[in-house]
């Protein structure tokens, strides 16, 4: 599993005849790096992610993986390279955890057979990695929110992607599971794009940050460059204080109305 170079050029998107939700956004993510996408509600984070996992076709601009436009690939080819963990609520259809993780092998197989020995190994590995061995026979509907999220991440890992897209992966998770997700993100050597609400967390985990405001890029670069009080005050309409934690001496942002 190795990362892919993600190159986004001047992308914009609008629904039908509606006004643009995203406008002229460009950035590059080197192979194996983590990009955090930040911004207020409605800033265009989810829209941008949808362009990256090929759910929406950009109205302007291109999304390229290792130089190849994702819209010149087949859906299957994209699915072999890009996996996403989204905030969708799965219907309760009594699928077992293992069966859901097995879905991750669909882009690589015939979609019909149960899958070969290699598929079984990859699914086992993903279950193991997310600590789901004991839950593998349970039905998704019986799991807690945090456990479900881990199942969805395991499913994405089973896809063996070269680009992993995460939409608010720490939402609704307790502190331990948040930290586990963050540790996972740092330990994977594939390219990752994740939207994050917690800016302090973004500063710790991400190699690069893209700050969106009303569908436009307000800043792109290292967390130190982008997550400055001035930028954040503009993006979120709050007052920001940069503080230094007394024990670890790390930078910490606090927010005030």
């Amino acid at each position: 599993m190795s990362g892919t170079v993600l190159s986004v050029q001047n992308v914009g998107w609008s629904p039908g005849r509606g006004h643009a939700l995203l406008n002229g956004v460009s950035f590059d993510v080197p192979a194996g790096k983590v990009l955090g996408v930040a911004g207020a509600n409605g800033a265009g984070k989810s829209t941008l992610l949808r362009l990256l996992y090929r759910f929406h076709r950009p109205v302007t601009g291109t999304v390229r993986l290792d130089g190849e436009d994702i819209w010149s690939m087949s859906t299957r080819e994209t699915a072999q390279k890009v996996a996403a963990v989204l905030q969708e609520q799965p219907g309760d259809f009594a699928l077992s955890v293992r069966e859901i993780v097995e879905l991750g092998r669909r882009p690589h197989g015939s979609g019909f057979a149960r899958g070969g020995r290699r598929d079984t190994e990859i699914v086992d590995e993903a279950l193991e990695r997310m600590g789901l061995n004991d839950l593998s026979a349970r039905s998704l509907g019986t799991l807690s929110g945090g456990e479900r999220q881990r199942v969805m991440v395991a499913r994405a890992l089973a896809q063996k992607p070269r680009l992993l897209i995460l939409d608010e992966p720490t939402n609704h998770l307790d502190i331990r599971h948040q930290l586990e997700i963050v540790t996972l993100i740092s330990s994977l050597n594939i390219t990752i794009v994740t939207s994050l609400h917690d800016l302090n967390l973004a500063g710790r985990v991400c190699d690069q940050v893209l700050l969106l405001h009303k569908g436009r890029s307000l800043g792109f670069g290292t967390p130190e460059e982008v997550l400055t009080p001035t930028h954040i005050e503009q993006a979120y309409s709050v007052f920001v204080r940069q503080e230094r934690l007394s024990q670890s001496h790390e930078q910490h942002l606090t927010f005030h109305l």
């Binding site: 996992y53 759910f55 859906t75 072999q80 969708e88 799965p90 879905l103 991750g104 669909r106 019909f112």
Partner: peptide, 22 residues
């Protein structure tokens, strides 16, 4: 023949799309 795709559709439209299903 499409049983695996029917499984994927229960997760959600966007996730199913990322699994290569039109």
């Amino acid at each position: 023949l499409r049983a695996a795709d029917l499984n994927a559709m229960t997760i959600g439209d966007e996730t199913a799309a990322t699994l290569g299903i039109p």
